[in-house]
C-alpha cells in the first residue's frame, strides 16, 4: 500500500479507538453520574450541579492530560529508540525522566509562583534536568560513537538511581510543607490540570512531536548506522541534536505535569511496531494516538480498581511494563555475548 494512504488508515483506526476509550473513561468514575447525565452535561443541558462539576472539571481535563502525556511518552520512546538504535530505550529506563523529576523538585524548592507561570517554570526546570541526565548517559555510554545495548541500559539505570537519590536528599533536608504533594507527584499521577497549564502542556507536546516527526524519514536511515546514514546524505550530527532535544522536551513536559510515568515509551512503540513495521513516518503519528489510548486505559483502571480510593497511574504502567521489559529482554533482544 502507498505510504500516505496507510498512514491515513492507521490514524483513522486509532482515532476511532481513542474516541471510544475516551467516551468510556468519561462514563466511569467513583462519583455516581449516569450516562444520561454525562451526555446532558456535554450537550449543555445541565450546566450546573455536581454532575457538571464532575464531568467538566474533573473527568474531561483528566482525559485530556492522559491523552497528552501518553502521546508524549510514546513519541519520546520512539525517538530515543531511533536515536540509540535500540528498541529497549525508554525515557524512564534511560534515566531522562529521573533527571527531569529532579529538575521539578528543585523548582519546587525555589518556588515558581502559580498558574501558567508555575507551569512554564516547572517545565523549564524539568527540561534542563532531562537534558543534563540524557547528556550524562550519552557521554558515559558512548564508546567510539556507538551505544552498545548493555552499557546504555546500565548507564541509564545508574543515572536514574543517582537522580532519584538526589531527590530523596532534597526531600529529607527540606521542610516537608514547602514541597507540597511531591511524594504523591513522584508516583506519577494524572490530576486534573487547570486550563491554562493544560494549554502550556499541549504546546510543549506539539513542539516536541514536531521536532521528532519532522525528521521521521531521516530516523529510518539512521537505523542503518551513522556512517551509512551520512553516506546516504543525512546530516547525522544535526539530526541527533534535534531528536535529543525533542525527546527530552516531551519527557520533561510529562514529568512536570504528571510526575514520572514509566514504560509507556517502551510498551506502546513495541506494540505499534508489531502492527505497522519500523517506518517512523507511520510509527510516530500512531504513537501520538496509541500512547494516549494506553495511558487513558491505565488511568481509568487506576481510578476505578480500588474506588473510591485511587492508585497512581505510574503503578499501573509499571505493573504492566516491568514484566513486558523482561519478556522483551529474554525473547526478542537476547544479547549475544
Amino acid at each position: 500500500m502507498i505510504a500516505p494512504r496507510r498512514l491515513a488508515l492507521t490514524l483513522s483506526v486509532l482515532g476511532a479507538v481513542l474516541l471510544t476509550v475516551a467516551a468510556g473513561a468519561l462514563l466511569v468514575g467513583s462519583a455516581p453520574v449516569s450516562p444520561r447525565a454525562v451526555l446532558g452535561v456535554l450537550v449543555g443541558e445541565r450546566g450546573e450541579g455536581i454532575e457538571a462539576v464532575v464531568v467538566l472539571n474533573l473527568r474531561l481535563p483528566r482525559i485530556a492530560v492522559a491523552l497528552l502525556a501518553g502521546g508524549a511518552l510514546a513519541v519520546a520512546g520512539v525517538a530515543f529508540q531511533a536515536l540509540t538504535r535500540n528498541p529497549l530505550a525508554d525515557p524512564a529506563i534511560l534515566g531522562v525522566a529521573s533527571g527531569a523529576a529532579f529538575g521539578v523538585v528543585l523548582a519546587q524548592l525555589f518556588g515558581v509562583g502559580s498558574g501558567v507561570v508555575a507551569a512554564l517554570g516547572l517545565s523549564a526546570f524539568a527540561f534542563a534536568g532531562a537534558l543534563v541526565a540524557a547528556g550524562i548517559v550519552y557521554l558515559i555510554a558512548a564508546t567510539d560513537g556507538r551505544l552498545p545495548i548493555q552499557t546504555l541500559l546500565l548507564t541509564g539505570v545508574i543515572v536514574g538511581l543517582f537522580f532519584s537519590s538526589a531527590i530523596t536528599v532534597v526531600i529529607s533536608v527540606v521542610d516537608f510543607d514547602r514541597l507540597g504533594g511531591v511524594i504523591h507527584w513522584l508516583l506519577g499521577n494524572l490530576g486534573p490540570v487547570p486550563a491554562g497549564s493544560l494549554a502550556v502542556f499541549g504546546a510543549l507536546m506539539a513542539v516536541g512531536t514536531w521536532l521528532v516527526l519532522g525528521r521521521a524519514r531521516q530516523l529510518n536511515l539512521l537505523a542503518l548506522g551513522e556512517e551509512s546514514a551520512l553516506q546516504l546524505g543525512v546530516e547525522t550530527e544535526r539530526l541527533k541534536r534535534r531528536i535529543f532535544v525533542g525527546a527530552s522536551l516531551l519527557t520533561s513536559s510529562v514529568v512536570a505535569f504528571t510526575g514520572p510515568i514509566g514504560f509507556v515509551g517502551l510498551i506502546v512503540p513495541h506494540l505499534l511496531r508489531g502492527f505497522l513495521g519500523p517506518d517512523n513516518r507511520l510509527l510516530i503519528p500512531a504513537a501520538v494516538l496509541g500512547g494516549g489510548v494506553f495511558l487513558l486505559l491505565a488511568d481509568t483502571l487506576a481510578r476505578t480498581v480500588v474506588a473510591p480510593a485511587e492508585l497512581s497511574v505510574g503503578v499501573i504502567t509499571a505493573f504492566c511494563g516491568a514484566p513486558f521489559f523482561v519478556y522483551l529482554l529474554r525473547s526478542r533482544y537476547r544479547v549475544i555475548p
Partner: peptide, 24 residues
C-alpha cells in the same frame, strides 16, 4: 558538496551491518 549532494553521485555498499529495526 553537502552530504546529500554527494550521495546523489557516490553510493556505498557497506560491509554487512544489519539495520537496528526490521525493515523490509
Amino acid at each position: 558538496l553537502t552530504h546529500w549532494e554527494l550521495a546523489r553521485q557516490v553510493a556505498v555498499v557497506p560491509q554487512e551491518v544489519p539495520p537496528a529495526f526490521p525493515f523490509t
